[in-house]
Write a protein that binds this DNA or RNA. Structure first.
Ligand SMILES: [Mn+2]
Ligand SMILES: [Mn+2]
Ligand SMILES: [Zn+2]
Ligand SMILES: [Zn+2]
Lengths: 157, 157
DNA sequence: TCCTTCATGAAAATGATTTCCATTATTAAT
DNA sequence: ATTAATAATGGAAATCATTTTCATGAAGGA
């Protein structure tokens, strides 16, 4: 179900318009897919889900829209090291990219670590504080990913 | 100082031969560059340093040799998110990729965090232990990088 | 030496993402 | 509503790091 606010406008449209972008069918379709999708979609994943219903929306538009969405903070862009970027609604990540990913190197399953994340956030903050002080480096962002074997794939090394 | 063992053979040649690879001029030149280099060289960086002395060594050979070196554990391969891989001697990293990188998004300087790393390693281990237990996921590897502004670039945001 | 295997370089292929460019849709001004 | 200015679009072509292909040149063993 598309989330709508009291005004009948979809939740994201305010921010979108506020940044000077127009609301078009293509963009609605793309955000709709992201909203409904489980997670971690690549540009082509999105293209393939949009295409049956809107065969005239091109990959280029997908990329352009994703760029905008990243820039205005509606989605995050992740690089899991397989050569294609993945995108995920900020909403799903609870607005933090302190949200960690476990990536199975065997089946490529991606597990979100979101529960009890507070302890982890605290540890990361601790690390960042240490690094900042020691190197006089102002950290604005980070990349933290863990690779290995998921429950189903353990023992298949 | 070039590391050599008692036998006069370069430090890496044993491992290299032991894995069934031949020792060639190209490979010596490439490892030599990596040994002398400050750090974090891309394939093309290496190519450009090798080329003046050995103009007949091609980029393809650089890539192939780097692949081998990664596989036998002589170098690490890093992805700093700028679209090209970087390589660094395992020796320089003290044999651990618990070695962290601070990447300046303004000047692209890469700072190694190697001092007092024990505390950080302990924190990361702690995180990994928690993740492993909770998700029954066997972690074999990770990617941890911090982005921001270095001392020289602070205030240029 | 003869032979099998490995190594190499040049050129072509790859594949995700970008750029170009001509066309269309949307908004703003009249 | 017409018109003018601006933004959005899709398809084709360009990018660019890395891989593959393929024909040729070493190196080592019997
Ligand atoms: Mn996620
Ligand atoms: Mn390093
Ligand atoms: Zn798995
Ligand atoms: Zn800097």
């Amino acid at each position: 179900m598309p989330r709508r606010n009291g005004m009948g406008a979809a939740w994201w449209q305010g921010k979108f318009k506020g940044c000077g972008y127009r609301i078009t069918l293509s963009r609605e379709a793309i955000i709709d897919v992201l909203t409904k999708a489980n997670k971690h979609l690549s540009a082509e994943d999105i293209y393939m889900r949009v295409h049956p219903k809107y065969p005239n929306i091109g990959l280029t538009t997908i990329y352009r829209t994703l760029d905008i969405l990243v820039n205005i903070g509606i989605i995050f862009k992740f690089d899991f090291g397989d050569g294609r970027a993945r995108y995920e609604l900020v909403e799903n990540t609870k607005g933090l990219n302190y949200h960690l990913h476990l990536i199975c190197v065997n089946c490529n399953r991606i597990i979100d670590y979101t529960d009890y994340i507070d302890d982890v956030i605290e540890l990361i903050d601790q690390i960042e504080k240490g690094l900042s002080l020691k190197y006089n480096f102002k950290i604005t962002n980070h990349t933290i990913q863990f690779y290995g074997f998921c429950k189903e794939c353990a023992g298949k090394e």
